[in-house]
């Protein structure tokens, strides 16, 4: 993965330099008579420099392996169709999870948000062969029951048994 390493290396250099500059801008409290060896920016600055250095090594190594040729295809994927399906599954998962945790939770009641998320997740990831072999109503009922049960059990378990506040 020389190309990915090359890009990561550049990103790490940027991150390290950014952290170093932020650290240098941190106060030294000299007017308060603070010992100069305790300044808040000392360790983050060192870490920034080290990360930039490690990023530099990664970049150089990746460049040596041809990673600088940004337009070149990384690898020849043996099964492009499967790769496409992988991306599809990943994007659906991302959309559902981020939509639930970052959007629904806190906006609508927790059991409702959880039930909706569970129902959509189960239905969208039910394998194709199951849609063909098992009657539609059965798949839907099972999904609704699992979604409802999870929402109820998690709510009761956290709020009543473990006395934890829900979002």
């Amino acid at each position: 993965m020389p190309r990915a390493d090359f890009i990561t290396g550049l990103a790490l250099i940027a991150l390290g330099v950014g952290a170093l500059m932020q650290s240098l801008a941190m106060p030294r409290f000299a007017d308060l008579g603070v010992n100069p060896y305790t300044v808040p920016g000392l360790v983050p600055g060192l870490l920034g420099a080290i990360i930039a250095g490690l990023g530099g090594v990664l970049t150089l190594r990746a460049a040596g392996n041809g990673g600088w040729r940004m337009a070149r295809a990384e690898t020849q994927t043996p099964d492009r169709a499967e790769r496409g399906r992988e991306w599809r599954r990943l994007l659906i998962t991302l959309a559902l999870t981020v939509g639930y945790a970052g959007g629904l939770v806190g906006s609508i009641p927790f059991p409702l948000a959880t039930g909706l998320f569970m129902l959509l997740f189960i239905l969208l990831f039910t394998p194709d062969e199951q849609w063909k072999t098992i009657p539609l109503w059965r798949t839907l009922v099972v999904a609704v029951v699992i979604a409802g049960a999870t929402a109820t059990i998690v709510t009761l378990l956290f709020e009543r048994l473990f006395l934890v506040r829900l979002p």
Partner: peptide, 17 residues
């Protein structure tokens, strides 16, 4: 598809708790 959403719900609640 039935287990992973439950795990994610627990991750969300656990992070907040």
């Amino acid at each position: 598809e039935k287990l992973m959403p439950v795990v994610f719900v627990l991750c969300t609640v656990g992070s907040f708790a």
